[in-house]
């Protein structure tokens, strides 16, 4: 069981991270060469328009005051107004986020579904043909860019065999799942490769551990030894790795959504870049980073409940 003390301690640790996220997202837009106001308005804007936006954005005040105002607004859930569609950034992001979250969760689920059994096969047949083939395939998978895998799956299973839609998101929940299957598989393959490699090593370590010998010596059937004793211990490091890769998964979602034309947060990011919609880029970066830090928190809690030593 998790101790309340550990949960509280871990919750407090997230505060400096959140402050850091707000500082970085504030500074990103300040990286703009020249005046952000004229960069947002483009070349055709008149000096008066630039001056007005300049004042509106509070750019005439000292940097620390600007940051204070920004942080205050963020805490209240106000991420500014999109310059492209003139709507609150928070609302646009919330509209787009469910698709991205569903995609990421599906991808994570598929990755585990692929990685766990294959890691077992590879570990139990260590050094034999099955192991070599599985490891080889995953090594190639690791070297494939997400957009390339996506294009291939799209062509073969959507355009060619017509098993899946070519793009979009569908209207009902079931259709969402159907539409997101190929994109999720695209994302899952690279994560599965990372997890598989780690889990295989962890299983090999756990198989030769004393407690596994002891469980076998007690006369427990192999199935019980493998699942109750070996898998549980092997999963601990994999959970950590899984958590660390949630950021990569969300990043990959940006590219996958572009390939499969899914109206998610990732697609919004790319569209905002072309529209030079800096408030939206800023807001999205912030929301995605906060999501990742929450995911890290959950990972740590899961890890601590799997392995009580972590919490000490």
């Amino acid at each position: 069981m998790l101790s309340i003390g550990y949960v509280l301690k871990r919750l407090l640790q997230i505060i400096p991270t959140l402050v850091f996220i707000v500082v970085v997202t504030f500074l990103i837009v300040r990286l703009l060469p020249g005046d952000p106001a004229s960069a947002i308005l483009g070349d055709k804007a008149t000096d008066a328009e630039v001056a007005r936006l300049h004042a509106e954005m509070g750019l005439d005040r000292p940097l620390i005051v600007q940051f204070g105002n920004f942080a205050l607004r963020v805490v209240q859930g106000d991420l500014g107004t999109s310059t492209a569609v003139k709507l609150p950034v928070g609302r646009i992001v919330l509209d787009r986020l469910p698709a991205t979250l569903l995609l990421t969760v599906m991808a994570a689920f598929l990755a585990l579904l692929l990685a766990v059994p294959l890691a077992f096969v590879a570990a139990l047949r260590q050094g034999r043909l099955g192991d070599t083939v599985i490891q080889g395939c995953f090594q190639v998978g690791l070297s494939m860019p997400v957009f390339y895998v996506g294009l291939i799956l799209l062509t073969v299973f959507a355009a060619g065999l017509r098993w899946f839609p070519v793009g979009g998101y569908g209207d009902t929940y079931l259709l969402h799942l159907y539409h997101l299957f190929l994109p999720a598989l695209t994302l899952a393959l690279s994560l599965a490769a990372v997890l598989m490699r780690n889990l295989r090593t962890a299983i090999l370590d756990a198989l030769t551990a004393d407690y596994a010998d002891f469980a076998r010596a007690k006369g427990l059937p192999t199935r019980v030894v493998l699942f109750r004793h070996v898998l549980r211990n092997a999963l601990i490091s994999t959970v950590t790795l899984f958590g660390l890769n949630i950021g990569t998964l969300l990043g990959g979602a940006v590219i996958t959504e572009t390939v499969f034309a899914i109206p998610g947060a990732g697609r919004l990011m790319i569209d905002s870049i072309y529209a030079r919609d800096y408030p939206t880029i800023q807001g999205l970066t912030l929301v995605l980073a906060v999501l990742v830090s929450v995911a890290f928190l959950l990972t740590d809690l899961v890890q601590a409940s799997l392995d009580p030593r972590v919490a000490q």
């Binding site: 400096p16 850091f20 990103i28 950021g247 990043g251 800096y278 800023q282």
Partner: peptide, 22 residues
Amino acid sequence: RLVDGVITFPFIVLVIAIVAVL
């Protein structure tokens, strides 16, 4: 603390955001 902060940003998203601005 800096490392904890940096790894919470999805690497691709942060790079894309910086490239978008620059």
